[in-house]
């Protein structure tokens, strides 16, 4: 699904991300951990197609429109939480999307904030909306940049439950190993030089 070999990203003569080999199979969940500055976010952005200047080989077996990145600090579009949740649905044909939205809203406990201005919500609520917004597009590849920061325990559990229930390739980056993702494959990103 995602294959990288001798992959590196260099900016201003400094290599900020380097991967010798990474092979992620379809419908698996991979946790990529590494120290600050090891290039985790750059790696996700490259897979998402936002970093074009890389060297080496990268093969993604999914259309760009079905590869969704949830940023480390998610951006809320102007409008309500409901507007943000439904944004991706406007360009994707999702069967039974009303029911799927209802289930995700329930799982992520977003009922009370649906009519609120998304920009005024707390960091944890914004993160849950961003993850739910991404999940609703039913991506083939879901890229999550430190998805558990800002989340309380119920929030973390709901995200883990959602990740386990979907049929997508999920790539999560985190500065530390996360025990709660026991089902995920591990990949340690060595610091770039």
């Amino acid at each position: 699904m995602i294959y990288l070999e001798n992959f590196s990203v260099t900016k201003q003569d400094k290599t900020i991300c380097r991967v010798d080999k990474l092979d992620i199979r379809q419908n698996t969940c991979v946790l990529i951990s590494g120290a600050n500055g090891s290039g985790k976010t750059t790696l996700l952005r490259s897979i998402a197609g936002f970093e074009k200047n890389y060297r080496g080989q990268m093969r993604i077996d999914a259309p760009a429109r079905q590869t969704v990145l949830v940023h480390q600090s998610p951006w809320m579009l102007s409008g309500t939480a409901k507007f943000n949740l439904s944004f991706g649905l406007k360009s994707h044909r999702i069967d039974n999307h009303v029911e799927k939205t209802r289930k995700l809203v329930e799982l992520f406990q977003l009922d009370n904030v649906l009519k609120s201005d998304a920009k005024t919500l707390s960091g944890g609520e914004q993160r849950r909306i961003a993850i739910a917004r991404a999940l609703l597009t039913e991506p083939r590849i879901l890229l999550l940049d430190e998805p558990f920061s800002d989340l309380d325990e119920p929030g973390i559990n709901s995200v883990v439950a959602a990740i386990q229930s979907i049929e997508s390739t999920v790539v999560i980056v985190s500065p530390t190993d996360l025990d709660l993702l026991e089902f995920a494959q591990r990949f340690e990103l060595a610091g770039a030089t």
Binding site: R65, L77, K90, S91
Partner: peptide, 20 residues
């Protein structure tokens, strides 16, 4: 920059990108 990336990653088509 996250505005453009969010719009793009959520797969918005041309007309929706412009409106957003």
């Amino acid at each position: 920059p996250r505005v453009g990336e969010t719009i793009q990653t959520l797969g918005a088509r041309a007309w929706l990108r412009i409106l957003t």
